[in-house]
Computed example of a mutant assay.
Amino acid sequence: MSTTNLDTARRYLRAIEQGATGEALAAFFHPEVTQQEYPNRLVPTGATRDLRALLEGAERGQKAVGSQRYEVRHTVAEGDHVALEVDWSATLKVPVGKLPAGGTMRATLAMFITFRDGLIVSQHNYDCFEPF
């Protein structure tokens, strides 16, 4: 049975939930990957990340987030393109805004992922955080 890009996108989210970093996370990305995070409450000016920055961000995230969950609400997949609407939640290790350590941060995400050769070559995130 062949793996579809949608299957890979779901496995990618599960790997993040399980705390994947380093090679385990890099295995999902094409070497030329770029991720665009559009401005949001947590990253007010937005951010563009390459593979190195994505992996460094995952390491930093381990220090701030104890656990996280991606609940996929809707998907659209066509060829090398996958769109996901996701409810995200994370238990914080450190306080963020009015949320204490141990509190839960929540967001609704729209993720648009493009694949090349079965690997993520671009990811665009529109992250809508609940007040914190």
Rank of each mutant, 00 (worst) to 15 (best):
S2D: 13
S2C: 09
T3S: 14
T4I: 04
T4K: 03
N5D: 02
N5K: 01
L6G: 09
L6D: 02
R11M: 03
A15Y: 01
I16H: 03
E17D: 10
A20Q: 06
A20Y: 07
A20P: 07
T21D: 11
G22W: 07
G22P: 08
G22D: 12
E23I: 05
L25F: 04
A26C: 11
F28C: 06
F28K: 00
F29N: 00
F29D: 00
P31R: 03
V33H: 05
Q35A: 13
E37Q: 15
E37A: 12
E37C: 15
Y38H: 14
N40A: 10
N40M: 08
R41G: 10
P44S: 10
A47P: 03
A47S: 13
R49A: 12
D50L: 01
D50V: 13
R52C: 07
A53D: 14
L54F: 04
E56C: 09
E56D: 15
A58F: 06
E59P: 00
R60I: 00
G61N: 05
Q62Y: 08
K63H: 15
A64H: 12
V65R: 07
G66Q: 09
S67Q: 13
Q68M: 08
Y70V: 03
E71L: 14
V72E: 07
V72G: 03
V72T: 06
R73G: 07
T75E: 10
V76Q: 08
E78Q: 13
E78W: 10
D80G: 13
H81D: 12
V82Y: 00
V82D: 01
L84F: 07
V86D: 09
W88R: 08
W88D: 07
W88L: 01
A90K: 04
T91H: 01
L92C: 08
K93C: 06
K93P: 09
V94G: 02
G97C: 02
K98W: 00
K98N: 14
A101L: 11
G103T: 13
G103N: 10
R106P: 06
A110Q: 14
M111V: 14
F112N: 15
T114Y: 01
F115H: 00
R116W: 05
D117G: 01
D117I: 00
G118K: 02
L119P: 05
I120Q: 08
I120M: 06
Q123T: 04
Q123H: 07
H124V: 15
H124L: 06
D127F: 10
F129Y: 11
F129M: 06
P131D: 11
P131R: 10
F132V: 07
